[in-house]
């Protein structure tokens, strides 16, 4: 039996221009043609070695307990340029704080608050100034988290709706 091989109008059929680089022409349903530039072999090999030698060490070793063994908050905080350019790196600091908080059941540890106030907020404030206020939300979050130990007894849960604990209680 013959098979109907009709291609729907809105489906694109890519055409490879260069097998070595992966350059592809994407023909859109409208008839418009776009070229997706290829990647040179040299660039690919650079990317591959960066991934294999460096990045994969980080992203493939996230075993349970890795933060207690491998997380170096001081080293991270001293890499100002990296923190400035990478939201991901800044998020790692928030993740670390969440981890400290999770295992600190009484929510009453001064060290948690002091770590944020003395070490993290000054670095984030500097970055925020350099980035002209672009990470203000992150600084505000840190300032609030630094007060958690004093507010813990009142279950002060902040939300984007204003952070009023009264509004959150049911």
């Amino acid at each position: 039996m013959d098979v109907d091989r009709t291609v729907p109008k809105n489906v694109t059929t890519p055409v490879t221009l260069n097998n070595e680089t992966g350059e592809v022409i994407v023909k859109k349903a409208s008839g418009k043609i776009k070229v997706r530039t290829g990647q040179t072999v040299e660039d690919y090999l650079d990317q591959r070695s960066q991934f294999w030698l460096t990045d994969s060490k980080e992203c493939t070793n996230l075993n349970m307990g890795w933060m207690s063994e491998n997380f170096d908050i001081d080293a991270l905080l001293s890499s100002i340029d990296t923190l400035k350019s990478s939201k991901h790196e800044r998020q790692r600091i928030i993740d670390y704080l969440a981890w400290l908080f999770y295992y600190n059941n009484n929510n009453n540890n001064r060290e948690f608050s002091q770590l944020i106030t003395d070490k993290i907020i000054p670095v984030f404030n500097d970055i925020n100034t350099e980035l002209k206020g672009k990470i203000k939300k992150e600084v505000t979050l840190l300032e609030r988290l630094s007060k958690l130990n004093t507010d813990a007894n009142t279950n002060n849960i902040n939300t984007k709706t204003g952070g009023n604990p009264e509004a959150m209680s049911i």
């Binding site: 928030i94 993740d95 969440a98 979050l141 279950n155 002060n156 849960i157 984007k160």
Partner: peptide, 16 residues
């Protein structure tokens, strides 16, 4: 969806 950090989520879960 209005909680603003994972720490807030933990506190919210423990409160309610």
């Amino acid at each position: 969806m209005s909680l603003s950090s994972i720490i807030d989520l933990i506190l919210w879960l423990e409160t309610n």
